[in-house]
């Protein structure tokens, strides 16, 4: 469902061109569980933003569900992002003035959905993530693990096919990190495609497919362990 072919991206940093992505060819099927690892500046986050339609390739093509995305207008890309992709960030990115419920509701509000529909969907995902009792709390009144679970709830409330997580446990202690990863893996088991960008080796190893990046290029792509995918 995600097909990247010969994707290149170059940034200008103080006059020096920085080749963030070099000839990336990557196909990701529905329901896969990938980790992307590599040193800082290797292009992990750029790849994530590219897949999440936050960035446009300089050259190459990116097809999402069979649709060529490079040529789409900004409005179309925003709608596609809204309907297909959920983001999870290291620093949660919750809006502090809004309650947990309102934060989770945000993508549905932007999509113009009706209040009743929103209420039901939000309560459902809050239940799934075990934070229904926090729905009227603001971010300042919650722990890190709870905050990230609110963020995950927000990422899945539109029922996206792809979940993109950028260092989801980076700001959490070990126990909370474990809970968050469990929650993400549960969602993957339900069929969502999960892509985790991380520095953390232990976290990266849990994925069934592991991608290594160096200097903007893919240097390794292993499918293993849990067995099933390696054979394919």
């Amino acid at each position: 469902m995600i097909e990247l072919a010969a994707v290149n991206k170059t940034y200008r940093m103080g006059g020096q061109p920085l080749h963030a992505l070099r000839d990336i060819n990557l196909n990701i099927g529905a329901g896969e569980y990938l980790s992307v690892m590599g040193p800082s500046g290797s292009g992990k986050s750029t790849l994530l933003n590219m897949i999440g339609l936050l960035d446009r390739p300089d050259s190459g093509s990116y097809r999402l569900n069979g649709t060529a995305t490079e040529a789409l207008a900004e409005e179309k890309r925003a709608a596609m992002r809204r309907d297909n992709i959920g983001f999870i960030f290291q620093s949660f990115q919750l809006v502090n003035r809004l309650t947990a419920f309102e934060n989770v509701e945000l993508p549905m509000v932007l999509a113009g959905q009706k209040r009743g529909v929103r209420r039901q969907a939000v309560n459902e995902v809050l239940d799934i993530l075990g934070i229904a009792d926090r729905r009227h709390h603001r971010p300042g009144q919650m722990s890190g693990g709870q905050l990230q679970r609110v963020a995950i709830a927000r990422a899945i409330v539109m029922k996206p096919r792809v979940l993109l997580a950028d260092e989801p446990t980076g700001n959490l202690d070990q126990a909370s990190g474990e809970e968050v990863i469990k929650a993400l893996e549960d969602l993957n088991r339900e069929g969502i495609t999960l892509l985790v960008v991380t520095h953390d080796l232990a976290l990266g190893r849990r994925a069934r497919r592991r991608i290594r990046m160096v200097d903007g290029a893919i240097s390794g792509d292993d499918r293993n362990e849990s067995g099933r995918s390696t054979a394919l």
């Binding site: 409005e75 925003a78 990115q93 945000l106």
Partner: peptide, 11 residues
């Protein structure tokens, strides 16, 4: 964040 969760420029 608004853009990441689907807000367009116009929105």
């Amino acid at each position: 964040l608004l853009k990441a969760v689907g807000a367009s420029r116009r929105q």
